[in-house]
Design a binder for these strands. Structure first.
Length: 423
RNA sequence: GGAGAGUUGGCCGAGCGGCUGAAGGCGCUCCCCUGCUAAGGGAGUAUGGGCUUUAUCUCCCAUCGAGGGUUCGAAUCCCUCACUCUCCGCCA
């Protein structure tokens, strides 16, 4: 949610900012609603004030034993008028909220213009692409004989699920362990375990609801619970409706969870393999920081994710998403894309976003700034560190040999119980 | 699943339908006193919104788990829901 004050004080700037997003904001409609809101709110509060004063004087008269009937008659007319005004006001406010919560975050000034992923800007590359003397296989072919099975998963559940067994299943667990250990021991994140089902308020807080309900799996509960699409949702909502003590800032959480996405808008994309699944494992990094430190925190968090790729010696590139590719709640997003020899392409393995106060305003997540003594909205920053399923794919494809075996990267060996090669 | 108790400010805790945005205590901040420490005295200490505004103060509205209702007036009465705790049952 954007700051409503800004809409009142500088609508022009709002329009300019939203144009960058190609978000068609109807300023005339907004202004009409806003002026109505102002008039009705003032009227309502005046009536409330009148009622409060009269009621108080009735109380005082009664205490003195005076006849209160004339006073009661005086207040008679107020009731209906007030009720009407209050109803109208709450309707207007609801409309206003609906309008505001559908508006995406402003883009950071450094975000390049552009329509889709083709317009993203490459920031850097790291690592040497592996050179094979044979034709590189993709993870589906490599996994076929090693316990990666899509048919069984389809039987058990449906398409877009995978079953992993044996050393390959262990490899994914090893990858997760490496990430958790690195982020807790070397990067200073606090290990966090959370519910995998969340309520609508939490999804609203991070921006998935109300706009993107179709991307979610909804459990048949009352009130509704949803499977988390990312640990970002439960973890960030830890600070919903909280005023964080300055001493505790910044908060840094790392959390491994499965993620569930219905991928409703992605039919036909990445149908082969486990690139795009309804369920996948991910390690998520979340930081709750003050406004002043958030830009730096975003850079650092992205580096923390990059460190995992470096440890695994996986070639990757860092990309700054363009206007059209930056998510609804984000003001600026870096994607990390890992090299997949099987596809001959870089593919997203992490997405690190800076939300500024957009999520915090929805969540009423604040901290007390010692300089002012006042509660101020926090800034939220998060990123995958990394998507474990895709990391597994990347390890398989980058560490394959001519016999179709997968070699275990050096850093993962301590977690593999003596396995060095998956045959 | 069954039975009971509860939800008030940063925390603890009071609160006959009107003078309670809320006693008292703790904590915190500032001041005084005391040659350190301790003890003592005084003042302050919720959040959101509106109006206005360069900005602030005053002012106005809302908020005592959430939502409805009764009433001129609700923290206080009624209804629904959520959550927490205790005991029993079940359970990894």
């Amino acid at each position: 949610m954007l700051d409503p004050q800004l809409f009142r004080s500088d609508l022009n700037e709002v329009k300019i900012q939203l144009d960058r997003r190609s978000y068609d904001f109807d300023t005339a409609a907004y202004e009409a609603l806003e002026s109505k809101r102002k008039a009705v709110q003032i009227k309502t509060q005046d009536l409330q004030n009148e009622r409060n004063k009269s009621s108080k004087s009735i109380g005082q008269a009664k205490a003195k034993g005076e006849n209160i009937q004339p006073l009661l008659d005086q207040v008679q007319h107020l009731g209906n008028q007030l009720k009407e005004a209050e109803t109208e006001l709450s309707q207007i406010q609801q409309k206003m909220t609906e309008l505001m919560e559908a508006i995406p975050n402003f883009l950071d000034e450094v975000v390049p213009a552009g329509k889709d992923e083709d317009d993203n800007v490459e920031i850097s590359r790291w690592g040497d692409l592996p050179e094979f003397s044979f034709e590189a296989k993709d993870h589906v072919d490599l996994g076929e004989s090693k316990g990666l099975n899509f048919e069984v998963a389809a039987k058990i559940a449906s398409a877009r699920f995978a079953v992993l067994q044996g050393p390959l299943a262990r490899l994914q667990r090893a990858i997760i362990q490496l990430m958790m250990d690195t982020h807790t021991l070397e990067h200073g994140y606090s290990e966090t375990y959370v519910p995998f089902l969340v309520n609508a308020d939490s999804l609203y807080g991070t921006g998935q609801l109300p706009k993107f309900e179709s991307d979610l799996f909804k459990a048949n509960n009352d009130p509704a619970l949803y499977l988390i699409p990312t640990a970002e949702v439960p973890v960030t909502n830890i600070v919903r409706d909280v005023i964080v003590d300055a001493k505790e800032m910044p908060l840094k959480f790392v959390c491994h969870t499965p993620c569930f996405r219905s991928e409703a808008g992605a039919y036909g994309r990445d149908v082969r393999g486990m690139i795009r699944q309804h369920q996948f494992e991910k390690v998520e990094l979340v930081q709750i920081v003050s406004e002043k430190k958030s830009v730096k925190a975003h850079e650092e968090l992205t580096n923390h994710a990059e460190n995992i790729l470096k440890k695994l010696n996986l070639p990757y590139r860092k990309v700054l998403l363009c206007a059209g590719d930056t998510g609804f709640s984000s003001s600026k997003t870096y994607d990390l894309e890992v090299w997949l020899p099987g596809q001959g392409k870089y593919r997203e393995i992490s997405s690190c976003s800076h939300f500024k106060d957009f999520q915090a305003r929805r969540m009423q997540a604040r901290w007390r700034n010692p300089e002012t003594g006042k509660p101020e909205l926090v800034h939220t920053v998060n990123g995958s560190g990394l998507a474990a399923g895709r990391t597994l794919i990347a390890v398989m494809e980058n560490y394959q040999d001519e016999q179709g075996r997968v070699h275990i990267p050096e850093v993962l060996k301590p977690y593999m119980g003596g396995i060095e090669i998956i045959e």
